[in-house]
């Protein structure tokens, strides 16, 4: 199982690091429809909060590709930790509950 985690995580990190800078820059489906149908401006509202890494570009990094790569790396690790952590907490809770019942 440890090998699966390592290989799976390596694949995800490799995608985020090496492929993300080459992703298409064209607007996505919803953005394109919003532009074509004239409601894109409705999304130009004041941000409710400011995210630390807006638009998958790490602030303070001059090279755009590297800024995207690093943003992808950080995001992949944060998501991994969050999902792993959630699974761990759920398992803990089920153990506690079954002890309480038993």
């Amino acid at each position: 199982m440890r090998r699966i985690i390592l290989i799976g995580l390596l694949i995800a990190v490799a995608i985020a690091l090496f492929l993300s800078p080459f992703a298409s820059q064209s607007p996505d489906g919803l953005e394109k429809v919003a532009d074509d149908k004239g409601f894109l401006h409705k999304g130009e509202v004041k941000e409710v909060f400011s995210a630390p890494i807006p638009d998958y570009t790490l602030p303070g990094v001059k090279h755009e590709g590297i800024a995207t790569s690093l943003a992808g790396l950080i995001g992949t690790l944060v998501v991994f930790a969050a999902a792993y952590g959630l699974g761990y907490l759920l398992k803990k809770r089920s153990e506690r509950d079954s002890r309480a019942e038993g």
Binding site: A12, S26, D28, G72, G75, T76, F80, A82, A83
Partner: peptide
Amino acid sequence: QIPLMGVLAAFIFAAQMLNFPVAGGTSGH
């Protein structure tokens, strides 16, 4: 399932960054 949840979520996040071009100047992921 715990580590698989982590790996799968990480893979999906990374893969969602890869916009591929579709017709008419649009991309999807």
